[in-house]
């Protein structure tokens, strides 16, 4: 039965790969969504002399998914003209205040809440330099410049109401995706980015490339079929061993 289990684990890995691909394309329309891709670990050779090592280590880890890595490349920028649509030009994240603590996002489709606070569409406040940013109710318009300075235009003149910092991390691949377009910093310390700029009136779209995902999908499907052929061959060989060899 030896060849069947490793091939089966390869099939399960392809199933998992299709899940990751499906999630990427389900999020084609999610602002600033970052695509995930899988890395497979190599086939570790079965040691012939492995009889005396513990059974756990003797189990070959054939065709396992080693990692799911997030590709943090910047997605295409769509110009929307809405002053509260913010795209980050460069690496970095907005900090969002949630009941679970500070979370990070690149999705910049902000809006105002009833108190005039700048919030995500789900109502979580955007964290400025000194807490959330509240715009005055009499503001006629709000402008955000590339350094993140938020200026409200009122009949009494221009009023600076806050500064939006962009945070970056030493290893952004280690951020944990938690859904709702948020990332959890886990154990990393966020530092204010000095290079990233804010583009008001623009939205970053998902960095998912549909043709690329389709090719990966075909690969997953075909590798799955190949695995099935191999299992059938192995089954035929076993059948021969059991039914024909035994007859001799």
């Amino acid at each position: 039965m030896n060849p069947i289990y490793p091939i089966l684990s390869g099939m399960l890995a392809q199933e998992r790969r299709l899940e990751v691909i499906s999630n990427n394309i389900a999020n084609l329309g999610t602002p600033a969504y970052k695509r995930d891709f899988v890395l497979f670990s190599g086939f570790s050779p079965v040691k012939r002399e492995a009889i005396d090592i513990p059974p756990v280590e003797a189990t070959p880890t054939f065709g396992m998914i080693d990692d799911v890595i997030t590709d943090f490349s910047i997605g295409p920028i769509q110009v929307t003209g809405e002053p509260l649509d913010l795209a980050i030009d460069g690496t970095g994240f907005f900090a969002i205040e949630t009941p679970q603590g500070t979370r990070y996002t690149r999705s910049g489709n902000f809006t105002l809440d009833p108190e005039g606070k700048i919030v995500t569409p789900s109502g979580f406040p955007l964290l400025g330099e000194g807490g959330s940013i509240i715009t005055p109710p009499e503001a006629e318009s709000i402008n955000i410049d590339s350094t993140g300075k938020v200026v409200a235009r009122t009949s009494a003149g221009l009023l600076e109401v806050g500064l939006i910092p962009i945070y970056e991390f030493a290893v952004q691949e280690r951020l944990k995706k938690i859904g709702n377009n948020f990332y959890d910093a886990v154990d990393q310390q966020a530092t204010v980015s000095l290079t990233a700029a804010i583009r008001s009136g623009s939205l970053e779209r998902a960095n998912v490339n549909a043709p690329e995902e389709l090719v990966a999908m075909i690969m997953a499907s075909r590798l799955y079929e190949t695995s099935q052929r191999v299992i059938r061959s192995a089954d035929e060989m076993l059948g021969y061993a059991v039914n024909e060899v035994g007859r001799l």
């Binding site: 999630n23 999020n27 789900s122």
Partner: peptide, 22 residues
């Protein structure tokens, strides 16, 4: 220490459908 992990997403959901008052 693993630099990255295995996280598999479960899809997408609408967050809001609102109007743009330009």
């Amino acid at each position: 220490t693993l630099p990255v992990g295995i996280q598999v997403g479960s899809g997408v959901r609408p967050e809001s459908a609102h109007r743009i008052f330009t």
